[in-house]
Computed example of a mutant assay.
Amino acid sequence: MHITSDLAQTLRPTAVAIGNFDGLHLGHQKVLQPIRDSLQGVRTVLTFHPHPQEVLTRRPQLLLTPPAEKLDLLAQMGFEQVVLLPFTPAFACQPPQEFIQTVLEQGLRVRHLSVGWDFCFGHRRSGNAQTLQAWGSERCIPVEVIPETKLNGERVSSSRIRAALATGEVSTAEALLGRPYRLTGEVVQGDQRGRQLGFPTANLRLPPEKFLPRDGVYSVWVDVPAAAAALPGVMNIGHRPTFAGLQHTVEVHLLDWTGDLYGQEVRVALRGFIRPERRFPTVADLIQQIQQDCQTARQQLGLAEQVGMV
């Protein structure tokens, strides 16, 4: 997949889907589908970096899919090119017609376009999907405007997914995404606390802009390089209050598996929320609770018949 931030380096002509696409959820997938199937040019996704809200609000934006994760998912979907267009205050202030001329016509030579119903662009969001449809009509370029996607009567959106994850509603987030919510990171050295308790954990270093679900304990499936299939596990997100922890960590204990993962990248798919993080009066109480967490994780992962092995 060709990746560029320079319009002069794009493969042309193109069939293009435009959007922020943070999360690549069910609504985004519907915008992407016409271009994924298009035969009218290099199948291209035009997205923006950094996230426009980060530039407009001047506040860091936590992302459901940081750039590397988004690119990996788009490659899996079969796209041939991704243009990561730099989003700057100057870019945000350009007139809609300038965006059309410099980006769509000159930079991409668009032959097929797909956007969501609420897509806006240009100074004060004065350009919209209807602007693009009028432009396409004048040039005999098909412009598809994808209507709002709903699930159970409510709009599918990145903000709704964040809200679900913030309350531990893993199944809701998965339904909106069309896949489990995943955390991808490198296994780094921790303080070995889990090993001392009899439950060794892989301590994950994640992209700093990755949106994390609420602190607590989760059942997860884990892809590791040494395993042919995903492994069951228990993940803890938080500060480990029993030990007065100060650092926020993401740690995964793999059930019925041992091995050295240091320096390797693993991918964790959330299956279910088990409980909030809390402080235990004694280490023995914590160990007892971890044993129970492992049993609950087996049940949530469909491994209930192995509960007696814990």
Rank of each mutant, 00 (worst) to 15 (best):
T88W: 08
G190E: 00
A164W: 09
N152A: 14
D215Q: 12
G168N: 09
W221T: 03
R160T: 12
L151M: 08
P142I: 04
E174Y: 01
S157Q: 14
V103K: 01
Q97M: 06
V115Y: 06
C140A: 14
V187Y: 00
V217L: 04
T172Y: 01
V110Y: 04
S171H: 13
N152R: 10
V217K: 03
Q196S: 11
E174I: 00
R139A: 02
V110C: 02
N128T: 04
K210E: 08
T131N: 01
D191L: 04
V103P: 01
H123E: 10
L104V: 08
L212C: 06
P142C: 08
V115I: 15
V103I: 15
V220P: 04
L204D: 11
F99H: 15
P142Y: 11
E144F: 07
E138V: 05
Q189V: 12
L183V: 12
C93H: 07
L132P: 00
N203E: 03
L212M: 15
V110M: 01
S126G: 01
R193P: 04
N203T: 03
S158G: 14
A175P: 05
L151F: 10
F211G: 10
E209V: 13
L204G: 08
A92V: 09
V188M: 07
R195F: 01
P89S: 05
A164E: 12
T167F: 03
T149W: 02
T88P: 03
R214D: 05
V103Q: 07
A166N: 13
W117L: 02
Y181G: 04
P180C: 14
E144M: 08
T184M: 12
R182A: 15
S158A: 15
F211H: 13
A129L: 05
F119D: 11
A163C: 05
P207F: 13
K150D: 00
F99Q: 07
R160E: 14
V115S: 09
G198M: 08
G122T: 00
N152L: 13
F199I: 02
R205E: 07
V115R: 11
P147R: 05
V103C: 07
F121W: 08
T184R: 15
N128R: 00
L113R: 04
S159I: 12
W117D: 07
Q192K: 14
L104Q: 10
P207L: 11
A166H: 12
S157F: 13
T172R: 15
F119Y: 15
Q189S: 10
F99E: 04
R111A: 07
S114F: 00
R193H: 11
S171Y: 06
P96I: 09
A164K: 11
K150I: 08
L104R: 08
A92C: 08
P147C: 02
S159Q: 15
G198N: 06
S219D: 07
R160F: 06
Y218N: 06
E209Y: 02
G178M: 09
L104T: 11
G127H: 02
T149A: 14
R182F: 09
L151Y: 12
A164H: 10
Q106L: 10
T184H: 11
C140R: 11
P180L: 14
L212S: 09
R179Y: 13
V187T: 00
R182E: 15
G136S: 09
P207C: 10
A134F: 01
Q196A: 14
G185Q: 03
F91P: 02
C120M: 06
R182H: 14
T149D: 02
